[in-house]
């Protein structure tokens, strides 16, 4: 187990390094640079001066080595835009918002997906199954920003049930926090729930055909008991894998959704950073997002040992 953890952690670090390096160079290949984004119309001397100030006049590989050395020491640099805030401070501010949104979207997705998947599998080819399938494809094919706008129009603008935009930290109370996140969580979680529901359905259909299900049925156990305690835990094994990977989807969804709902999370930070060619901000944010992704997948692998006793590391 310990060996496995060490092994996977090293792997995780390699992945994060690769992602960060790729982003570093891709940012510099993209046309336009931060100075151009800052200054609309100015003398070349001024631009040169600014470039020197931010170290952008040096060769790319020198910039890379310097940046990499700083990151290793925990220094993500400063935003070159506006008030030159430290990137780490920006991230610390944005992170709880994105994590709140991601967690709540996850909860929304699971609460929808598990019953939907189970019903679809146990009533295969019934009207209920077909409607679950239709909703799943609707959920998957609706763009999340569009769904977000529809939700705002219906529940915020017309019904006035929930606020349209903004975020309230948990320290201001549970309800204000939740109130601001319900609509974004639905917008970001719908596609995720559709994937998971479809996965649960097909995985359950597979498990329901297994020999041990017939054995359990022959023992005189009740059908709901069979479904929940015999079939479902087995069906979860492949589903959990997909959940880990589909978590990336949740992260990308949150980028768009945060922008629609004006939540200043990592997604919004990233978009602003890209628009401003704010290299340090983009690099730092991507590094954190990839760390979250890698960590979640490691967590999924650990979860296996709980749901499947045959797996031991």
């Amino acid at each position: 187990m310990l060996r496995f953890l060490i092994h996977r952690s090293i792997g995780a670090l390699v992945v994060m390094w690769a992602v960060a390096t790729l982003v570093f160079f891709m940012l510099r290949i993209v046309p336009g640079d931060p100075i151009a984004a800052m200054l609309f119309d100015s003398s070349p001397e001024m631009a040169e001066q600014l470039k020197a100030k931010f170290g952008l006049d040096q060769p790319v590989y020198v910039q890379y080595v310097k940046w990499f050395w700083a990151v290793l020491q925990g220094d993500f640099g400063t935003s070159i835009y506006g008030s030159r805030l430290e990137v780490s401070r920006l991230i610390v501010e944005a992170l709880p918002r994105t994590i709140s949104l991601a967690l709540l979207s996850f909860v929304v997705a699971i609460v929808i997906a598990i019953p939907a998947g189970l019903i679809a599998a146990t009533r295969k080819n019934s009207k209920l199954d077909h409607s679950v399938t239709v909703f799943a494809f609707l959920g998957l094919s609706m763009p999340d920003f569009w769904l977000a706008i529809i939700l705002i129009i219906v529940f915020a603008a017309n019904l006035h049930w929930l606020p349209a935009i903004g975020y309230a930290p948990l320290s201001e109370g549970f309800w204000p926090w939740l109130q601001h996140l319900i609509l974004p969580a639905i917008a970001a979680g719908t596609a995720f729930s559709a994937i998971v529901a479809r996965m649960i359905r097909s995985s359950m259909l597979e498990v329901l055909k297994a020999d041990y299900m017939q054995v359990a049925r022959s023992k005189g156990l009740k059908e709901p008991f069979l479904i929940l305690f015999h079939a479902f835990p087995n069906a979860l094994i492949p589903v959990v894998t997909v959940m880990g990977i589909a978590f990336a989807l949740l992260m990308t969804a949150s980028v768009v959704v945060e922008n629609v709902f004006v939540i200043k999370g990592l997604g919004r930070l990233l978009i602003q950073g890209i628009l401003n060619r704010d290299y340090a901000v983009v690099q730092g944010t991507i590094l954190v997002v990839s760390a979250i992704f890698v960590f979640v997948n490691l967590l999924v692998d650990m979860l296996y040992t709980i749901i499947d006793p045959r797996i031991r590391y």
């Binding site: 041990y212 022959s218 023992k219 005189g220 015999h230 087995n234 499947d308």
Partner: peptide, 22 residues
């Protein structure tokens, strides 16, 4: 269901797959 297990029990062919693995 009340007959199954209680009055008539069944033993299946494949012991390797007849028990629930989890």
């Amino acid at each position: 269901r009340k007959v199954r297990g209680r009055r008539i029990a069944m033993i299946f062919q494949e012991p390797m797959t007849s028990l629930n693995p989890v």
